[in-house]
Each structure stands twice: as C-alpha cells, then as structure tokens.
Simulated assay, not measured.
Amino acid sequence: MSKGRDKALISARDRKLFERYYYWTEVKRLRFDDALQKLSSEEFFISEGRIMQIIRKMIREGEKVDGAELPAVGFNGFRVSPKAKCDARQLSLFP
C-alpha cells in the first residue's frame, strides 16, 4: 500500500474545484478574484495559489464542464486569448 494522499481523492477534489470555479465565474458571473477567494476560504480551504495551479492544470489537460471549455486564465486573472501561445514553462514563471 502506497503512502501519502489517495490520488483518486485528489483527482475528485480537483474536478469538483474546477466545476465550482466554472459555476462562480461563468454561471454566476463572479469576478475572478472574488471566485478564488470564495473557493479558498469558504469551500475548499486551500490557498488561492494552489487553486490557480489546479485550474491551470485542468485547462491544459482540456477538461470541460458540461461540454464547455473554460477560457484560459492568466496569472493575474485576465482571460487569455485562445490565439495566445502559453505553455507550462511560461506559466511556471508566475507562482
């Protein structure tokens, strides 16, 4: 039996976090920073930086919510144009 956190549980948490982020930003039209704060302090109790890492990872992997892709999010919360070329190496420059 491996030590550490269960990867299936982490994956399920990340998926749920991504769905909740979609809900707050796309359905309820909450501002990006307000959605991050709500997810961090009221729903998942992890840092805003970690939430951003999870969201970026899910977007890079092409995850969808109800068949809709979430627009890419830059380091400062602004949406990134689909034509903008940004890879994992560039994203790693911003903690």
Rank of each mutant, 00 (worst) to 15 (best):
Y22E: 01
S2M: 14
P71D: 08
E19T: 03
Q37E: 10
A35I: 00
D33R: 07
E19Q: 10
L39K: 04
P82R: 14
E63Y: 09
W24T: 01
R50M: 13
S2L: 14
G77C: 09
S47E: 05
W24H: 08
E19D: 10
R20P: 03
K57V: 07
I10W: 02
K3L: 15
A72D: 15
K16Q: 02
S40L: 00
W24A: 12
V65L: 09
V27D: 02
L30D: 03
L9E: 07
K64R: 11
L39Q: 01
L39Y: 03
R20Y: 10
F94Q: 13
A72P: 11
K83L: 15
F45R: 09
F78G: 14
S92I: 12
A72V: 07
K64M: 14
L70T: 05
R29F: 02
E61N: 08
S11M: 03
A84D: 11
V73T: 10
E63W: 10
D66P: 01
R89E: 15
A88H: 13
D66Y: 09
P71G: 03
S41F: 08
E61C: 05
L39M: 02
G62L: 01
A12T: 01
E61W: 09
K85W: 06
A88Q: 15
R89C: 12
R50W: 10
G77F: 05
I59F: 00
P71W: 08
I46G: 02
D6Q: 04
I54V: 15
P82T: 07
A12H: 02
V80Y: 12
L91R: 10
R31I: 02
R31D: 12
R60G: 09
E48P: 01
L30N: 04
F45C: 08
Q53H: 06
K85R: 09
S40Y: 00
N76W: 04
F44H: 01
F32G: 00
L93E: 05
V65A: 06
S40R: 01
E42C: 04
K85F: 06
G49A: 06
E42T: 03
M52I: 06
S41W: 08
G4P: 00
P82F: 14
L9Y: 08
I51N: 06
R60K: 12
K28F: 10
R20H: 11
I46C: 03
D66A: 11
K38N: 04
S92P: 04
A84F: 09
C86A: 15
L93A: 11
P71K: 11
P71N: 11
C86M: 15
R50H: 08
E63A: 15
E19L: 05
F18G: 00
Y22W: 07
M52Q: 15
G74H: 02
P95H: 06
K7S: 06
L30A: 07
D34H: 03
R20A: 12
R13A: 10
V80A: 14
S47T: 07
E69V: 10
D14Y: 03
S47N: 04
K38L: 12
I54F: 08
K64G: 05
F78Q: 15
L70D: 04
L36G: 02
P71L: 13
N76E: 13
D6H: 01
R13D: 13
G74M: 10
Y22L: 02
E26W: 01
L17N: 03
N76M: 11
P95F: 05
A8C: 02
S2E: 13
